[in-house]
Design a protein around this nucleic acid. Structure first.
Lengths: 136, 136
DNA sequence: CTATAAATAGAAATAATTTCTGTTTATCCT
DNA sequence: AGGATAAACAGAAATTATTTCTATTTATAG
């Protein structure tokens, strides 16, 4: 359920609009990473002319809110996926290179070094590419 | 020195053109990640009208050859950086969010699990963001 | 129920990247 | 060294992802 996401938005005084509901519902249903355009294709059915710019705006909002994450894939399109774990625990994501399914991936043995090669480390992100059960 | 890179290209029957030399020299000199456009700006000085399309083509070739890597940064531009370690050892890269300097980062405690959550793991990439010595 | 700030639609602009065509050039071979 | 050949080049033009802008609509707080 995406009730969590809606709660999150509400807490931060963002409005729960039909479009936002629809985008989050879509992610719940599709269960994989999506491009802005794909999302738009789906929403067009329900919202006659929903407009790509609105999709972009909302996607970036969701990323800022920690509801979605951006996924890198081949090609020059942007992909987004639901981030299921909102516990605040550090985790990463594993992406199926075939179908685009994305799951949380809790394991990370990143060393507890605060500084390496003279760098002060701010953050790190890891993307794991694989093939999911149903694509194998 | 970038003699290594040239040797690598030669081995795979790619031609050593002045432009390719110039691009690799530039990466050596700048010692940070660059966008295709920045590279073009530099090359214009030497090669009157060198052409962006050629830059793109060469950058992607260098990535395929393992000479350059792609770096993710804010904004919608593509960044490339030299991959200094050609030993074949598994490593990652650390990027200065201020100046774009990139260094190899050998530490990676990725678990030796071949399959997780039903996924067959193919590869993983980690990007570490930090602030380099001279930007601190 | 109303006021208001935020979100929307839609058009239009921007800018990154790719494709294409004809010309030039590095390299291999003799 | 010189010629043949496949690869790389320049340049223009097309494509397409993303952003910006303006006027209108809508969700929410009071």
């Amino acid at each position: 359920m995406n009730a969590d996401y809606l709660k999150k938005l509400k807490q931060d005084h963002f409005k729960i609009t039909p479009k936002r509901r629809a985008i989050l519902d879509l992610f719940d249903r599709e269960d994989k990473c999506l491009t802005p355009e794909t999302i738009w294709e789906h929403l067009k059915k329900t919202f006659k002319q929903s407009g790509l710019p609105g999709i972009y705006r909302n996607l970036e909002l969701f990323v800022k809110q920690g509801i979605l994450i951006r996924i890198d894939r081949e090609g020059r399109k942007r992909y987004y996926a639901l981030c299921h774990d909102h516990s605040g625990h550090h985790h990463h994501h594993i992406v199926c290179v075939e179908c685009g399914r994305v799951d949380d991936f809790p394991v990370c043995h990143f060393p507890d070094i605060k500084s390496t090669k003279g760098y002060k480390i701010l953050s790190h992100s890891m993307q794991i590419n694989g093939i999911c059960k149903s694509c194998q």
